[in-house]
Amino acid sequence: MKIVLKDVVKEFDTFRAVRGVSLEIGSGQLVALLGPSGSGKTTILRTVAGLEFPDQGAIYFGDEDATDIPVRERGVGFVFQHYALFPHMTVGENIAFGMKVSKKARSKQEIHARVNDLLRLVKLEGLNNRFPSQISGGQRQRVALARALAVDPKVLLLDEPFGALDANVRHDLRRWLREIHDELGITTLFVTHDQEEALDLADRVVILDQGTIVQEGTPEEVCRKPASAFVMKFLGDTNRITATAKSGMVDIPGARLSASGLADGPVEVLARPGDLSWSFDGEGIPVSVLRVIDRPEGRRFLVRTDAGETLELDVPIDIRASSGDRGFVQVLRGNVYPR
């Protein structure tokens, strides 16, 4: 089911949570709404669900105007941040709830069989009679998903689905959610503040800031061509080097970057830690090493330029230095934004 948002505005008291968001989510896509807290991502998700109603704008499910359809008739599956499992019902009863309250009458056997199918889908066979307090966080998350899927939703909506879980469990559940999505092919929209999660999981990423979309695209597009300094900074570790643009070019020691389309004047050059390289002598920005950080995947230098800016760069693990050592940093790639 295709979802279309047209100029959606939502205000709370005096706070504009969503300020004119238009978005099209293709049928069967897995899309992430990514943004810092207060960016309006959860409000957008709740508006799509029918848990909130927009003050302006419209929401279409396929060709149908769903703007005023209340949540219980909208046919969405919603997975809440803290799962919102019914604590007094067993896992099986939780999953069966939607079928029990449905207008469509189902026999006990029918419900029972469907519950077992769903438990198998989320790999929780045998936990039918446990209460939510008796299972782990990751298992609760999967029960919540099974419960949402039980009513055959047209659209699946997840609010910070992995927010409350350990890093390890989170990683596994991400892979697993992607598998389930590919198996069922259901249009899925999820909210996260974790860029890694969004990039890992989604077909398309919608980046939000202060209630507006600042960029949307595939993970490749947003990573390789960040539309603004905000997107660049939000997506990952970023180094900032101040410089000046002159006739479409920016000169920094050891590098010359294109600033096409930018007026002459002060700019900032943003570069990832992997886009900088290190040498003990030669060309580049003269720096002194502040700290060396060793990680399983590599080594990172924290350095300070003579102008007092702190930079982080990833170096091959055979390069050794200690704090106080002097050297040079070369900018291999960087994006230039006005400052």
């Binding site: 219980r72 969405v76 809440f80 919102a84 019914f86 709830f97 949402a148 009513v151």
Partner: peptide, 27 residues
């Protein structure tokens, strides 16, 4: 009482009465 419980029940299609009877009252 977590408001998300009632929202969850609503999203699953529960009427006000069935939510009161099956979710709120037992809790």
């Amino acid at each position: 009482l977590d408001p998300a419980l009632e929202e969850a029940a609503q999203s699953l299609g529960g009427s006000d009465w069935s939510i009161f009877r099956m979710v709120i009252l037992p809790l």
